[in-house]
Design a protein around this nucleic acid. Structure first.
Lengths: 115, 115
DNA sequence: CCGGATCCACTTAGATACTG
DNA sequence: CAGTATCTAAGTGGATCCGG
C-alpha cells in the first residue's frame, strides 16, 4: 500500500499536502492511532505526519482524541466533513485508474518531444 | 473570474500546480492564445504561465500549435485526455460549492482552538 | 507513545529585464 | 506576440535530536 515505487507524480490531482490524501484513506475504515498511521505511510516522519494531521484538524476534516492512561494513545478520526471528501477522492482515483495507461504513454511521448 | 480576493487556500483539491486548474477551465470553451489566457488569470506572469503550459503539454493534457504569420500567435487547446480531466474537476468544484460554508466555519473554529 | 525544535535541501512562484 | 534569463523570497518535506 502506498508503495514509494509507484510514480505518484503522474497523478494530476492532489488533496492538501503530499500525504493528506493517503491519511484520509487510512482513516476511511475508522479511527486510527498515530503510530498505526505510520505503518501504511511508509517513510513518513513523525513531524510531517503531525503537520498533516494538524492541518486536517484545523480545517475540520479530522478530529483528535487523546486517551491518557498507563500508555498514552491518541486517536484520529474523520469528521462528517472529512468523510465528505471521500466522494471526490474516489472520483479522482477512478479517473486515474481509467487513464493510467494513457497517462504513462503521454508522459513518455512528452519527454521524447522534449529532446 | 478567478478573483484573487477569493481565498482559494480553503480549497483542499488541487490539479497540478497553482494555476493548472484555472488554465484548464480557460481552455474548456475551445482553443485559446497565450495572451488570451493571461486575461482571466489576473496576475500570472508570462514565465509561470509558460511553465504550467509546458507541464500540461508534456503530460499530454494540452496541445500547442504555433501559427506563423505577420503577427505570431500560438494556440493552446485541450487534448481528449485533458478534456477527460473536466469530469473530476467538476466533481471537486461541486463539492467545494456544497461545503463552502462548512469549510469557512470549520477553519474559523480551528483557528480559534489554536489559541 | 506522541510529538516539538532545529536545521537543511529542494521546489515554487513572482519580480524584473530582455529577445526573436 | 510569446516567450527566455536571472534573481529572490517563501514554502515544503525530510533528517536528526530532544522531551513529557
Amino acid at each position: 500500500m502506498f508503495d514509494p515505487v509507484c510514480p505518484t507524480d503522474l497523478m494530476p490531482f492532489r488533496v492538501g499536502d503530499k500525504w493528506t490524501g493517503m491519511v484520509i484513506r487510512c482513516l476511511e475504515g475508522g479511527p486510527r492511532r498515530f503510530s498505526e498511521l505510520r505503518v501504511p505511510l511508509r517513510g513518513i516522519t513523525a513531524k510531517v505526519l503531525t503537520q498533516s494531521l494538524r492541518a486536517l484538524e484545523r480545517d475540520g476534516f479530522v478530529s483528535r482524541r487523546e486517551h491518557r492512561g498507563p500508555v498514552r494513545h491518541v486517536e484520529y478520526a474523520l469528521t462528517p466533513l472529512g468523510r465528505s471528501l471521500l466522494g471526490p477522492l474516489d472520483t479522482a482515483c477512478a479517473w486515474a485508474e481509467q487513464h493510467w495507461d494513457e497517462l504513462i504513454d503521454a508522459r513518455e511521448a512528452g519527454l521524447e518531444r522534449a529532446d
